[in-house]
Every structure is written in structure tokens, then in C-alpha cells.
């Protein structure tokens, strides 16, 4: 199982490589990727350094170009594909059919991975992308259970990558418009969910309000730690109850089911978080590396170590983790 780690800048990429990532995925500094945040991502010189740093140490670099271009600006996505290809990256992670078509035609030798943003949940769907664009790997959305992932793997013409750790999307990625409904900007169109440009923190007499384009996402009482107002992770009112109606602010953590993921034939484990700090990337990469190595050595004897879980808990959203859709009770 390959360990694929995120990097939003050069220090993060070094942290990922130095702590044992097999591959690092990055994006360019614009809306061609789904982590289009201020101060994040790569341009020319640093990109070249990043690719060289990883590849000199025998690691791979994947470039995410996984948003959906509209006719105006389509050339920007094509340019991103060309730039990545010219720098000799190991694979592109693409979502849009038009861009897949372009990349497959212009760079037939280059490896293409299907991004989670393409929201493909079945082998039937994977086949479409395999037949038409020759994709060589697919990243599955975080809505499938382990059994459903297993089923997809048995019929998939290409290896499967799944998310192993990090922020959890509860909606099927690539088809969630909650963010643009509130702000006009979505992961598909802009490369960001609940964009910082629309966030407001507001001190009230009895705590803090967090707003997204004016919409109250959550209210935190005195002493309660206020979290970032990601739209699906706020407390809302349904009927008589005020609660996390969609999802609690938790992170995905698959350490406890690594042997299962290996057994069903998962080829790569992805860590979410290009927007996180180099320290975060380093820490999570080190734990995942140790866990995967342990698991591969003896899957039967494998148990997640307490120190790993502790380390991951300290960096998790709301300090809580979940297996998400991988296990039934979550649904």
C-alpha cells in the first residue's frame, strides 16, 4: 500500500518526504485545484524544487488539477496540465472529463489518476474513465463502506486509492454545492469549500458566532473552542433539536482498519490536508508510515499503537476521529 501525503508548500513537501511518504500530491497556485487557498500551493521555481526534492529521494509527485473548468479560463487548466507534464511529475490527479480528454490526448504517456472530485462510486463508472482516458488509478469518495470499496476493487480495471486520514467530507465529493449555495464559490468552480473570504467570527455577549457569508454556521458558548465554519459541520436546528445535523467536526482515521483495507486490495492510502502546516504533515506522515509498515509486516498481529492514536488525536479536527462511512454505524 502506497502512502500518499499532502503538501501545500515546499516545507510540507519536505516533511512528507522525510517522514516516509511514497508519494506527495500538490497543486498550483490558482483555481485549478481543490485547495485554492491564499498563501498555499506552488508556482514555477518552487514547483521545480519540490519535484526534484521528492524524485531525488525516490518518491513520486502527483499534481491535483481537480476542479471543473468552465469555457472562460479553460486554457488555464490546459496550461496546468502542460506545466506539470513538462516538469516530469509522476501523475496527474484529474476530475473533469474535458481536462482528462485533453491530458490523455496531449500527454499519452503521462499517468492519470481519477480524482475523488469525479465522484465515481462504482466499477461501472471507473470503466468509463479507463476506456476513454486510460486512467491508471481511481480515488474513491468517502461515502463508501469498506464492503462497498471491496466490491468496487474486485471489478475495477485499475488500482484503487482511498482516504486514510484527515478532514472528512460527508457529502460525495465533486457533487456538493453547499458552499456555492451560501457563498457563490464551491470546490468545483473555485477550488474551495466554505472559503475564508466569506468567513466572519463575531464576539457576542455570550460567546462566539461563526458565519459564512452572513449565514450563522455555529454559536460557541463561553469557554467552548470555536471551530472553522465549514458549512456541513455547524450546529443547526431541525425540529426541536439544535445539533450537528450533518456531521460533527471530526476527522477520518482508518488506523484501526488498515489490515482490512490491505486485505481487500486497496493500493494506496491518501492523507487529506494540503492546507495544513508542515508540522501536521510531518507528524501524520510519520504515524501513517509506521502503521502501514507494521500492518504490511504482519496484518494479523497488527494493532494500532496507543502513541499513534494519541498523536493523531492531537492534530484532528475537534480532537475527535471517526471511521466515517467505512463502518455501518456512522450511516
Amino acid at each position: 500500500m502506497e502512502l500518499v501525503c499532502p503538501a501545500g508548500n515546499l516545507p510540507s513537501l519536505k516533511a512528507a518526504v522525510d517522514n516516509g511518504a511514497d508519494a506527495v500530491y500538490v497543486g498550483f497556485k490558482d483555481d485549478t485545484n481543490a485547495r485554492h487557498f491564499a498563501g498555499l500551493n506552488f508556482t514555477g521555481r518552487t514547483f521545480e524544487k519540490a519535484v526534484r526534492y521528492a524524485q531525488d529521494k525516490g518518491r513520486k509527485v502527483f499534481v491535483a488539477i481537480n476542479t471543473y473548468p468552465q469555457p472562460k479560463g479553460f486554457e488555464r487548466w490546459q496550461a496546468a496540465v502542460d506545466q506539470a507534464a513538462e516538469y516530469g511529475v509522476n501523475a496527474l490527479i484529474l476530475a473533469d472529463m474535458g481536462i482528462l480528454d485533453y491530458a490523455a490526448e496531449r500527454w499519452p504517456e503521462l499517468r492519470l489518476h481519477l480524482s475523488v472530485q469525479a465522484s465515481v462510486t462504482s466499477a461501472e463508472g471507473i470503466q468509463f474513465y479507463h476506456e476513454n482516458f486510460g486512467i491508471r488509478r481511481v480515488v474513491l469518495p468517502r461515502v463508501l463502506s469498506v464492503n462497498q470499496v471491496a466490491h468496487a476493487i474486485t471489478q475495477s480495471p485499475v488500482p484503487v486509492e482511498v482516504f486514510g486520514f484527515g478532514s472528512l467530507c460527508v457529502m460525495v465529493e465533486g457533487r456538493c454545492l453547499l458552499s456555492s449555495y451560501a457563498t457563490g464559490r464551491s470546490p468545483n468552480t473555485y477550488g474551495a469549500c466554505s472559503p475564508a473570504s466569506h468567513v466572519r467570527w463575531e464576539e457576542t455577549g455570550d460567546g462566539t458566532n461563526t458565519r459564512l457569508n452572513g449565514v450563522l454556521i455555529d454559536h460557541y458558548g463561553e469557554g467552548e473552542k470555536a471551530g472553522y465554519p465549514t458549512l456541513c459541520k455547524g450546529r443547526f436546528q431541525v425540529g426541536d433539536n439544535t445539533f450537528y445535523a450533518l456531521e460533527e467536526p471530526t476527522s477520518l482515521n482508518t488506523l484501526s482498519i488498515l489490515p482490512k483495507l490491505w486485505e481487500i486490495g486497496v493500493s494506496a492510502i491518501k492523507v487529506e490536508g494540503r492546507q495544513r502546516s508542515p508540522a501536521y504533515v510531518g507528524q501524520v506522515t510519520a504515524v501513517m508510515r509506521a502503521a502501514i509498515d507494521d500492518c504490511m509486516q504482519d496484518p494479523q498481529a497488527y494493532r494500532p499503537k496507543e502513541q499513534w492514536m494519541k498523536k493523531l488525536a492531537t492534530v484532528s479536527e475537534g480532537s475527535q476521529t471517526t471511521l466515517g462511512a467505512y463502518h455501518r454505524p456512522w450511516q
Binding site: 471543473y68 473533469d96 474535458g98 462510486t121 470503466q127 468509463f128 468545483n188 468552480t189
Partner: peptide, 29 residues
């Protein structure tokens, strides 16, 4: 309404419609 259906229909040589939650954002698609 998802890519699986597109694959099934196009493989069978059948005409089809795509729904509002199917991502077509540009002319090449």
C-alpha cells in the same frame, strides 16, 4: 444521474440525457 449510467447506456449504443447533478462544466465535456 451518475457516470455508471452513462457508461451502461453509451456501451449499449443508447441515447441518453444527463441530469442536473451530473458535472458538465465545459464544451469539451
Amino acid at each position: 444521474n451518475d457516470i455508471s449510467a452513462v457508461h451502461l447506456l453509451s456501451s449499449a449504443g443508447k441515447d441518453f440525457v444527463t441530469g442536473p447533478s451530473f458535472n458538465i462544466y465545459n464544451a469539451r465535456s
